[in-house]
Simulated scan of single mutants.
Amino acid sequence: MTLTDIALVIFTFLLLAYAVYDEFIMDKKNGKTLLRVNLQRRNKIDAIIFIGLVAILLYNNVNAHGSPITTYLLISLGLVAFYISFIRWPKMLLKPTGFYYANIFIHYARIQTMNLSQDGVLVIQLEQKKLLVRVSELDDLERIYKVMVSYQ
């Protein structure tokens, strides 16, 4: 196994571990999930570029009669990247003591202010940072507000 194959195994494993954490483990941490809200997908162009680069590497490996294990590893990396980018939805999980946003748990006590912009973006001001929550359905904003007010 070459250094390239080892790097492909490591990166594929890390992406797969992230996908499992995001889909199954995060839902179980920090109490019962009160509300799960799908957010808008972002950075589609970056994902397309990454998958395109993996496809170019796969083509070069097959064309140069490279190692079959490298071919399989590139295919698996491309499939996991495709799943993370286009099948999985980014989400916001609201729990009794806080919420998950971008896979980070934030306690309700850290919220300074909440505002709603005209284009439907919920702006949550923390101590030093603003979170811009872009939901996929505008009806979810009202449900987020109700859960946050009742548990804060």
Rank of each mutant, 00 (worst) to 15 (best):
L16I: 11
A17G: 07
A17V: 10
V20W: 07
V20A: 07
V20P: 00
Y21E: 14
D22M: 05
D22G: 13
E23L: 07
F24Q: 12
F24E: 04
F24P: 02
I25T: 12
I25Y: 14
I25P: 07
M26G: 02
M26N: 12
M26P: 01
K28W: 11
K29R: 15
G31A: 12
K32R: 14
T33Q: 14
T33D: 10
T33P: 06
T33C: 15
L34Y: 15
L34H: 14
L34A: 13
L35F: 03
L35E: 13
L35I: 03
V37M: 08
V37N: 04
N38P: 02
L39C: 08
L39E: 14
L39M: 14
R41W: 07
R42L: 06
R42Q: 14
N43D: 11
N43V: 03
K44A: 03
I45E: 01
I45N: 01
I45M: 07
D46N: 13
I48S: 02
I48M: 08
I49S: 03
I49E: 04
F50V: 06
L53A: 04
L53Y: 10
V54M: 05
A55G: 11
I56N: 06
I56E: 06
I56M: 09
L57N: 11
L57H: 06
L57E: 10
L57G: 09
L58W: 10
L58H: 10
Y59F: 13
Y59C: 13
Y59M: 13
Y59N: 07
N60S: 13
N61T: 15
N61V: 08
N61K: 12
V62K: 06
N63R: 04
N63I: 01
N63Q: 05
A64T: 07
H65W: 04
H65V: 06
H65T: 05
G66R: 08
S67E: 14
P68M: 11
I69T: 06
T70Y: 05
Y72C: 02
Y72K: 00
L73E: 07
L74Y: 06
L74M: 09
S76M: 05
S76L: 13
S76W: 05
L77H: 00
L77V: 02
G78C: 00
G78T: 02
L79V: 15
L79Y: 01
L79Q: 02
L79K: 05
V80H: 02
V80P: 01
A81Q: 13
F82T: 10
I84K: 15
S85V: 03
S85G: 08
F86C: 01
F86G: 04
I87D: 11
I87R: 09
I87M: 12
I87K: 13
P90R: 03
P90W: 09
K91S: 11
